[in-house]
Design a protein around this nucleic acid. Sequence first.
RNA 1: CGGGGCGUAGCGCAGCCUGGUAGCGCGUCUGCCUUGGGCGCAGAAGGUCAGGAGUUCAAUUCUCCUCGCCCCGACCA
Length: 575
Amino acid sequence: MRWTKQLIPTLREVPQEAEIPSHQLMLRAGLIRKLGGGLYTFLPLAFRALKKVEKIVREEMERAGALEILMPALHPREIWERSGRYEVLRDVMFNIKDRQDRPMVLGPTHEEIVTDLVSREIKSYRQLPVNLYQIQTKFRDEIRPRFGLMRAKEFIMKDAYSFDVGWDEADASYKAMYEAYERIFKRCGLRTKVVEADTGAMGGNWSHEFMVLADAGEDGIVECDQCSYAANLERAESRPGGASDFDEAALPCETVPTPGRRTVQEVAAFFQSPPARLIKTLIYMADKKPVAVLVPGDRDVNEIKLKRALKARELALATDEAIEQATGAPVGFAGPVGLQIPMIADLRLKGCKGAIAGANQNDAHRIHVDLERDAKVEDYADLILSREGDGCPRCDGSLHEKRGIEVGHVFKLGTKYSELLGANYLDVDGKQKPAVMGCYGIGVTRTLQSTIEQSHDDNGIVWPISVAPYQVEILVLNMQHEESVRIAEQLIKDLEARGVDVLLDDRDERPGVKFKDADLLGLPVRVNIGERGLAKGVIEIKVRKSPDLQTAPIAEASKAVLGCVDELWKDVAIS
RNA sequence: CGGGGCGUAGCGCAGCCUGGUAGCGCGUCUGCCUUGGGCGCAGAAGGUCAGGAGUUCAAUUCUCCUCGCCCCGACCA
């Protein structure tokens, strides 16, 4: 392909809309253009790269035995009401009506649709297992689209759904997908970290996320420095220490005036005591009922864990009025002693003595609190947000925080959807049973951008060879020089005959412009053909990711380039 | 939805405070020149100053409203 016949609108300056490197580079290298917030057009180069990612995904899904289908993007709203997820996902769903005034939604995901299909077509255990996948555009009315393709309102996702006769069989399907994902990301040239994750609105029992480590990542994760434990912060546990006993003697609980001291910091300073000695008491509304949540003063509540522990559908911090009503004191003075609403405490508070807590009256706190002696805590659970330096829950190591971009997520769903939507089969014993499901997503467009986020330098993109829009870029430094052009054309012919995608920069531009744009585009191998080299009988080869410039005799040009290309394929080979 | 910022030529920005109908760099087009890291010279095109209303003799500039975009937060498969 010739540059002058392609559409590659490179930008010299950084568009102000872009914040992170991958987004800036996608705009500058002429890969994408914005139509509106969270809506992007893929220009030819990005489209080529996208197709390569999709091809890898397809090959690995097929290898794992999944069958490709294509489901509608437009769904009757009714099916979502039937599963109960219209309520759960209504905020992210685009609602529309057809001309008959029938309510429709644009699909944010496809569990309902595929389960409906399977419920109609799969009747017998003889037809199982089955794993159906598609590569589809999903629509989500994101509260805040961000970072180009990272969080868009419309994006391409590969989603697969497995149906098995039982739990063990479903585990095998899950494992097969997990392994397929490892291969996919490796082949895309991505280094990913697999973490334990929360299942969120998907429901289900267990899930793993495939994370691309990057500062711009939207998810916090922790990983152990000694074992393989890694988890999304939403789910991460940490090793609880022993019960905290701050009192030598078991002194009776006592109320102390603390005028105007509301925050943990203020109170800790007032008592000249470490924040950890305080019991932080937060009032939440769980399904419209107040509940007190107790955590160590130096820790934050993990609302996802809390929601799970309370088995609540809705959870939010109580309003100031609700707090006053529940505790009888203004915000900042809640405490477990004498509180009349249900209480749940973090595991780390179990058996703690000599603590400081709010007194449930204005401008007062209690000291020498022995939680078990002085309060009625209904339940203890792991409720806090893990953080840097916490102990690993699995070993003696400690946890470290990182940022990650979620590119893949595999879920064990169980029978939630099959029961709801009637995906039952007839087993050997003649009984109707719900199929055991798993679902598996890859954000294809996000994966593409992650590749750039993880592989770029100051000058531009550094494409892995497997997803690069073209594998080789040839620069003819002076298009007026006929010999250069002739040699370039011969080289292109040779390379294309060997299945290599080649882009020729045939613009009548000065060399400097071409070099800059070549670095920006980041195609894996660059070939310089210029009079200076030809005078010595050589062409030059520059591998984008390496600093070295090599030369090859004109007669061996294609062989030398192919050698570089082959070498680069080793980076993304699966073992 | 809350907080902040921005909207002037394709891109990056100045002008606005202190009202008098718009400018710079890059890009684009033409010609010359040049050809190893965003070259040089000469000329040119390109603007409903986001939209609407108001104040004023006069609004890019002041006021109000609306829309869009970006960032932070809440939220998130």
